[in-house]
Each structure stands twice: as structure tokens, then as C-alpha cells.
Amino acid sequence: MENVQLLEAYKRMVLIRKFELKAKKLFEANKLPGFLHLYVGEEAVAVGVCSALRVTDQITSTHRGHGHLIAKGGDVKKMMAELFGKATGYCKGQGGSIHISDYNTGILGANGIVGAGLPIATGAAFAFKYKNEDKVAVCFFGDGASNRGTFHESLNMAAAFKLPVVFVCENNLYGISVDARYVAAGVVNGKNIADRAVGYDIPGVVVDGNDVNAVYEAACVAVARARAGEGPTLIECKTWRQLGHYVGDPDNYRTDEEKAAWLQRDPIKAVGTQLLEKGVCSQEDLDKIAADTDALIEDAVAEAEAAPYPDASALLTDIYAE
């Protein structure tokens, strides 16, 4: 990444982190309904990939989707309002944290079903190719989803039809509490999920998911390939979530040693250090980014809290289109 881009990436990663840590506090204070799945620690994946995209490109996201949405350009105010279930949220409170979408920003939707985004992104890519539009679809999914049937069927269709889609596997090593080594074939022997690309005759790339530069570079290659009509790519980003599967998860399935080691590799701190070392900005600049972001998040929360809930009459709207 060029310096300017790296700085933008840093700001975006900080925004994701602060949005989520604030959401966590709100959730713990019983202010947010439903569930909350946080992306803390995986920000380099979303930001690295989305830095390679245009606003007109579409992404599908997951239950752990805040990072993808913010990285793609989502408005944190509308997102926060949606988390509160308010009428001013992205989905008028009808979707919530795991169903946020905004077509105009290129967010085809977060999804509550693990692996459900893969065929949807494949179909979006089908539409782009069909209409001869210069657009790419990107599907974010986890290591857990890579074991679902949707993974196979989507990669197979996308590869057979040479669709402009990039499959981004965020391998955070666990499907809720279950270590991928126990349930994902080959992982225990050091095989990668990206190695499965061989079966579809498409590139399979492994990158350090905590290194935003590495993710960005891999994404640029894959996106260029997709735009050129050469078909899909499977990128596996090795990463780790710093918090539990959801807020409230006892997180007793990971050892203290493992936690300590991964926390040393925080993706945002790494970019901050790079920016300082390269002389792109000073510590004061970084502090200001943090303070400005805090202020934006506080505004988002204040606006969301003040916003109205949907009227009861909204219940039966939007089920069917005219």
C-alpha cells in the first residue's frame, strides 16, 4: 500500500475497532437487543480486501460483519441505529447486526446463516458478467463456512462459469468453540483451506490476515483476475478473533498462551507502527485519529439513542415487493 492508502486503511481499521468496542459496552449494558458477534482482531482482512474494491463492487458478509460493512464504506451512524433496532437504521430495525445491507455502498448483505453468502456472491457475479458490468463480487466467510456444502457448490459454479468473484476465507481457527484442526479435513496436517482451490482449478492463496498490506496485495491480484474475466480466486487469510464468538462467550476453549501470542500481533498496532516508522504521521496524529473516531462513534450512539423505534404499523411492511 502507498502511504496515503495505508493511512486511510489505518483510520478505517480504528473505526471498526472503536465501533465494535463501543457496541460491546452497549450490549453489556443491555442497550442492544439480540446478539453481537465481534470482529476485533480481524480488521486487516476486511480493510485490506475492501481497499482493492470500488464502491460499485458488491460484498457479501457474515454474522461477524461490522468490519466488512465499515471497510466497504458503510455509515457507522446507520449501522449503530440498526444495532439499536431503530427506524433510522440501515434496515429500519428489521435486520439488526447480522443482516445489515446497503446495495448503494456495495454491501449485498451480512448473513445469519454460516456459508449462505457464497452462492449469493456467486449470483451477484453472474449478474455482473451477464450484464457485462465492470464489477466484482467478494464473499467474506469463515473457516467454518468452508466446510459447508455452499462452499463447494459456489466455488464449483463460479469456476465453471468463470465468474468475477473473490472468495475470502477468514480463517480465525475456530468455528465457535471447535478448533478447525479437529473438523476441517487436512488442517491438522498443515494443509490450508486455500489448498481446496486446486480442486476447482482456480488460484488458492494463503496470506497473513493480520497484515493489511499482504491482504491488500492478494486482493488486488484476485480482483484484477476477476475483472479480466479469468474467474474466481480463493484467498485464505489466517487471522484470529481477539474476543469470543459472541459477546458473552466464556471463550474457555483457547489457551492463555495462544491468546497472548495472537494479541502480540494486533493488526491495527502493526499499521500504526508502520505509519510512525515511515514517518507518515506522528504519535499526535495517531492520537488525533483515535480521538476523532471516538467522537464520531459517540455521535453515532447519541443519534441512535435519540432516534425513534419503528412504528408498530411497520411490522408487516417490506415482506413482499409490489
Partner: peptide, 19 residues
């Protein structure tokens, strides 16, 4: 392909994107 999940699933994405 004989791939019902992709047949119906891709249609959801394609329909959402204008087809």
C-alpha cells in the same frame, strides 16, 4: 451442475443485482 444450492442460491444474488 446437479447443484441445487448453487442453482437457487446464485439466483438470489443475481436477482438482487438486477436480473
Amino acid at each position: 451442475a446437479i447443484s441445487e444450492t448453487a442453482i437457487i442460491g446464485h439466483a438470489v444474488g443475481a436477482a438482487a443485482c438486477g436480473l
